[in-house]
Amino acid sequence: LLPRAVAAGRFSTDEPVTDPAVATGYCNFFEFGPAKDDPPQLAHAMRTDPWSVAVSGEVERPGNLPLETLLSFPQEDRIYRLRCVEAWSMVIPWTGFPLSALLDLVQPTAAARYVEFETLFAPDQMPNQRTNALDWPYREALRLDEAMHPLTILATGMYGEPLPNQNGAPLRLVVPWKYGFKSIKSIVAIRLLRERPVGSWQARAPREYGFFANVNPDVRHPRWHQATERRLQDGGRIRTEMFNGYGDEVAHLYSGMDLNEHY
């Protein structure tokens, strides 16, 4: 299923784009295993057709959205920096649509404060889900204002092609100012909530993975000194920018918050 006509997007960076062989060969998709080459080797077993997203919780119009409906939203190109919590980064041309388009369709109620996402749970197709490496199914969440931000997209393709399975086919979140683990892959469920939920990584190691997970060169991870990053594949090591360089667009979302505490 190829997304239809694609408009040149807003917010795109003109930095050199990462080689697609690297972006599709070096993946964190723990459902298939912890190694970077597990997803490219194993993700072909994931069935993405048919696909739908179950929307529930604090919405006026809950229900199942078939992928076809989502692909009929106006799609645009977004060339974004992607900064992983593991201190590497890529520049990826995504195709997708603002998450706000979907939320506008399902109409969050006045009580909705958070948007939670869930990845497919299918241990027969995703071998690492048979272990307890993480609390499956993988869950991530955004505050509603973060979710409605025009930078936040649901991607349906990359490099002008439909998303490869290892990159989160057929539908994934992309939140470019947050560490990559927030950009949840292969989404099957979206829930609008009153209370802040706990993400899968946050549940596993709350001291290491915060709810906000904004890219922040001043907040260290126990294993990764976040002041610098390796720009794959050959951009060398560069300094990490606050909010991954998207501060002009998103810093206002966090005004008055201590980002050392709310990491």
Binding site: R220, P222, R223, H225, R237
Partner: peptide, 18 residues
């Protein structure tokens, strides 16, 4: 190959336990 610059390596060595 990984750090690429003495200043980056020094910063990591100063701050990171591992």
């Amino acid at each position: 190959l990984d750090q690429g610059h003495p200043a980056f390596a020094w910063a990591e060595a100063r701050m990171m336990r591992h």
